[in-house]
Design a protein around this nucleic acid. Sequence first.
RNA 1: GCCGCCGUAGCUCAGUGGUAGAGCGCAUCCUUGGUAAGGCUGAGGUCCGGAGUUCAAUCCUCCGCGGCGGCACCA
Length: 853
Amino acid sequence: MVRYNPKEVEPKWRAAWDAAGVFKAEAGGDRPKYYMLEMFPYPSGSLHVGHARNYAMGDVVARFKRARGFNVLHPMGWDAFGLPAENAAAERGVDPAAWTWDNIAKMRDELKRLGLSLDWSKELATCDPAYYGRQQAWFLKLLERGLVYRKEGLVNWDPVDMTVLANEQVIDGRGWRSGALVERRKLTQWFLRITQYAEALLDGLQTLDRWPDKVRLMQENWIGKSQGLKLTFEIVGGEPVAGLQVYTTRPDTLFGASFLAVAPDHPLAEAMAAADPAVADFIAQVRRGGTSEAEIETAEKLGWNTGLKAYHPFDKQRELPIWIANFVLMDYGVGAIFGCPAHDQRDLDFARKYGLAVLPVVLPPGGDPALFHVKQEAYVGAGRIFNSSFLDGLEIEAAKSAAVARAEAEGIGQGATVYRLRDWGVARQRGWGCPIPIIHCQACGVTPAPTEQLPIVLPSGLDFSKPGNPLARHPTWKHTTCPTCGGPAERETDTLDTFVDSSWYFARFPNPNSEDAIDKAAADYWLPVDQYIGGVEHAVLHLLYARFVTRALADEGMLSVKEPFAGLFTQGMVTHETYRRASGEWLEPGAVEVRNDGGQRHGVAIDTGEPILIGEAEKMSKSKRNVVAPADIADVYGVDAARLFVLSDSPPDRDVQWTSAGVEGAWRLINRIWAEFDEPGVADGQQEDAAATLALRRGAHRAAKAVTETIEGFRFNSAVARLYEFVAILRTSRTAACAPEARAEALSILARLVAPFAPHLAEEGWRRLGNGGMVALEPWPTWDAGLVEDEMRVLPVQINGKRRGEVRAPAGAASHDVEALVYANEEIATRLEGLTVRKFIVVTDRIVNVVAD
RNA sequence: GCCGCCGUAGCUCAGUGGUAGAGCGCAUCCUUGGUAAGGCUGAGGUCCGGAGUUCAAUCCUCCGCGGCGGCACCA
């Protein structure tokens, strides 16, 4: 008996894989390609078991596919720009580049320790000028094509940090870092014209049949396509403009209109504000309103009656007042609406507040036109149009078409498709990001940086100690000459959103050293990514941006695929209990001893012995100190145990709760597996037992089939459960007199089935069995269908739906044969005495039900 | 408010239109030369509640209850 010692075994095999270059990917050859990718990490400097779970899943698939004969690309890189480095710089005065590269080195070591089958020769980091310089190159190409533009828009501005914040960085109306009240400020910003691809991105979802429905649905909702009518209302008196255009998805309710409303930042509102301080005050008041979701939700409807009126387009006798309203959004549709209070809740709330008319025009089925009134709830259901001139009597859909057709015929409007999706604001006032390759010249204006100047590299020695953009206040960096006129000019000091960095890295991986941003030949071979794995938190932003950039680059001729990720899997989080002292101080798991007294768990602080409150399992976070690092586990049990556990306890798309007991369970499994490899012998001096041999072979072949199918179905937890069963069978077989060949065959299958999950253990076991080479290079086991299927079946027998016994029947036995067996069964026959059999149901190979009374 | 997911043993969670499961925990016993342990055996369930479909429902359908997540004034 040799004890399994992961501390020696694991490093040894990692070195062996490395030396043999087992995981190095080369484009080409006869094997089909398989591109396995996990979302690359931010190099925070420390790996936690959540990372380990993500990468372990990808590694199972990568190793499995390799064994199944695929040419596998499985690369790793670093999403290395972003705020944490700036925070470190601000707090500790370190250089963000040095800090980041140092973290990368640490995390690379930790990742390598997980025994992942990665091709490290493909490594890249987004903060490397070799990477972001190429990003600048394609950014300029998109600029030429009109996909990049500048526009003035309202943004979330943090007055303390002096930067633009993304919506998700605004919490309860305050900057997430500074805590300052966020202002809505007008700024000129860089945008990527993702809306040009709205339809393509929506259509493309149809082709992504290996994506979770949930993610496709979220993207569909995010793109938010709607069909409607853009319609121009003629303004009474023709001042200050002749007409006002609105957008509606309910042209059928036009005759129910009782007012028009424009957004506070609509040009009409702004024009009036310029002329009237009271209007300006109103707009300022509305803008001050909070930006948090809760505030928006509860915000009261506010309006300003401009005094202007417009003619109803289909009834010139009617004049509708024009309001400025806080609930109308400038960046959706055309920033102006008509209000139909009877059939829209927002319009109704507004109308009730300001005493505007409520005119019902949709009659619910069975409703009486004379009696139907709308009170506090708008009617948005189906029905027939009434009170509506030429639309009367039509169903809603027919009325929409009729109204659009009439508006088009009269030349006052046209059918329109509108998307909720907004263009992507990509400029950030940050110093640790990809510089936007633009030069501002007093004389020539906004000029692209010449390609030969790329990469435009970040300077060293930036000052992060003060809020605001360190690039903008760097003494020399921004000063340059205009490429057009040669005069003095300034570089753009905004940097790109880090989502830009991560929107094309998968296309760079096939050849990360290419002179071009993308090595077309290599990308054409490897793309699309066959299986992408990452957190569901990226369901919309990252995945939508990546899809957009892929299409934009494809239209540029740089790529051939339209969709970057053919298969997507979103994995759940790893959670952990939280521990805190009575004082409220959080404690890390290592500082607490959890005791178990008669099933009652309670925690004790190791340092003081005081009782500790055990809290619910939550997402691992630094603030609650419930983070577990794979390194801690590796020191005690080895990384294979950690890998097995994070894969075993819960389906991959669900959260898994990390517990020390669970890891110990995985560690025991490892030892049980090792015990099988270590004692392959058969009980001596016994006669070979044919039945036991068959049972062992069946178990092995069934395990091979089941593990294969569960990996393919992304049910890694079930796959591990099948390994548990298989090991139990092997254990039984040790004391039975199985044929030595059967035992050897079973152990060979075991090593190969274990390899994707616990690769180090599998290699050591493979060697212990007397094999040469590496299990990482072995083909996946196959199985004999004849051994997987049992020729005899146990059929439960029910009487009136309750299980009353069972019979053994040959597989596929016919109904009448089974019936005979059932009546021949003494126990069942007794129960049927005195009953009249009404029905006899046989489900072949599954069950029998006798209906009797 | 809209959309989605979840509810099964003490805990964490699998699973299936047809015999209710695993790990951990708990109990009993064995081993003490696999010992920073190992093994045998066992107890433990209203499969959230109600109705429906079915020969048969934990599973399918509908209505509730509870928890979680996403979106949210998108005209």
